[in-house]
């Protein structure tokens, strides 16, 4: 069967998934609003900060009235849905600006961080894991496994601070944080790339152990499969056997792992953003959660849900592409 034949049912799957996605997103947003309603935090006090202790109750009540946060939750929810349909994501009470502009200013940096780190972690772990599996029990294998366990046991923020201490303070090679040089007059890509090396590296390294260990085990397993033994017996080069035969079969469950690992990657990104003072979604998400900022939380939750759904879909499609036994139109 040709590759295009294998993806023949992709369009039907896409349609089916989109139909499922709507109720999932709706349920997520309802759940988010219900949780928010259960939260006892007063957004007006949160907004006032230290002034909450000197502001009169009348003053705080005016703020709540301005934002409509005293309305019953169903009313707030319907208003929010109505605005959403018209393309208005609402007003962030914790950042005091439109939700759309909070997302526009910040989501790009978070996506960039996560995207590059994920690509790096995947490529790195596929290579290293395969190489370790090829000589199972060898020096490289043992060193890699020890390293993976060690990194897995380190909290991300600790790893970040250690990386700053080594690469920024002791060696002086890389900046310790920020998106651009603190005195820069603009945002140039070279400057941003320079500043993102450490955070991307730390996020990739912190997420890699899972992937590395998994690839190593899966490849080591498939090295004993009949088709791999046969390939070897035919005298194919080691590289072809490893990457063309053994890794290929091991790749399938790996795709699933990537899909399920995405939320953890997002969590890691929040911490990395904090440690490297990057203006991504991490810090505002925390502030929105602490400040009962419904509109911003809802938008971030929805966006995250959509990304996870899309990632699952992509995983399934990739499955079909990688494994001839999987059929989408079945």
């Amino acid at each position: 069967m040709t590759r295009s034949g294998r993806l023949a049912g992709a369009r039907a799957v896409l349609r089916r998934r989109l139909l499922v996605a709507v109720p999932v997103l709706a349920a997520t947003s309802v759940g988010m609003f219900a949780l928010g309603a259960a939260s006892p935090v007063d957004p007006a006090k949160q907004y006032a900060g230290a002034a909450a202790f000197t502001a009169s109750e009348e003053n705080l009540a005016q703020l709540r009235a301005n934002w409509g946060v005293d309305d019953p939750v169903p009313v707030q929810y319907l208003r929010w849905i109505g605005n959403l349909v018209r393309g208005d994501l609402g007003w962030s009470t914790s950042r005091h600006e439109p939700v759309a502009s909070v997302l526009a200013a910040r989501a790009g940096w978070t996506l960039l961080l996560i995207g590059v780190a994920l690509a790096l972690a995947l490529v790195g772990s596929l290579l290293l894991g395969s190489l370790a599996a090829y000589r199972r029990g060898g020096l490289f294998d043992r060193a890699l496994r020890a390293g993976a366990y060690a990194v897995q046991s380190m909290p991300v923020f600790w790893l970040g601070l250690a990386a700053i201490a080594v690469f920024a303070l002791a060696l002086g090679w890389l900046p310790a944080g920020g998106l651009t040089d603190v005195t820069a007059t603009g945002t140039s890509w070279g400057d941003v790339a320079h500043h993102l090396i450490l955070p991307v590296g730390v996020l990739a390294v912190s997420q890699a152990p899972w992937f590395v260990l998994f690839v190593r085990d899966a490849v080591a397993e498939s090295m004993r499969d009949d088709h791999v033994l046969a390939a070897r017996a035919r005298g194919l080069p080691g590289r072809t056997v490893l990457f063309g035969h053994a890794l290929r079969t091991a790749l399938l469950p790996f795709l699933t792992l990537v899909g399920t690992h995405l939320p953890e990657l997002v969590g890691g990104a929040v911490l990395v953003e904090t440690v490297f003072s990057l203006p991504g979604l991490g810090a505002v998400t925390v502030a929105a959660a602490l400040g009962s900022d419904f509109p911003l939380l809802a938008a971030i939750t929805l966006a995250t849900t959509a990304v996870v759904l899309a990632a699952n879909l992509a995983t399934d499609l990739a499955y079909a592409a990688a494994d001839p036994r999987v059929r989408l139109d079945g």
């Binding site: 601070l161 303070l169 310790a176 944080g177 603190v182 005195t183 003072s277 810090a283």
Partner: peptide
């Protein structure tokens, strides 16, 4: 001529960046 105010929420990170000579 210019003043830059850097917003760094985490205390330890601010200390490290101070140490790195940024501020």
């Amino acid at each position: 001529n210019r003043v830059v105010v850097a917003f760094v929420a985490d205390d330890n990170v601010r200390a490290q960046r101070m140490r790195a000579g940024e501020f």
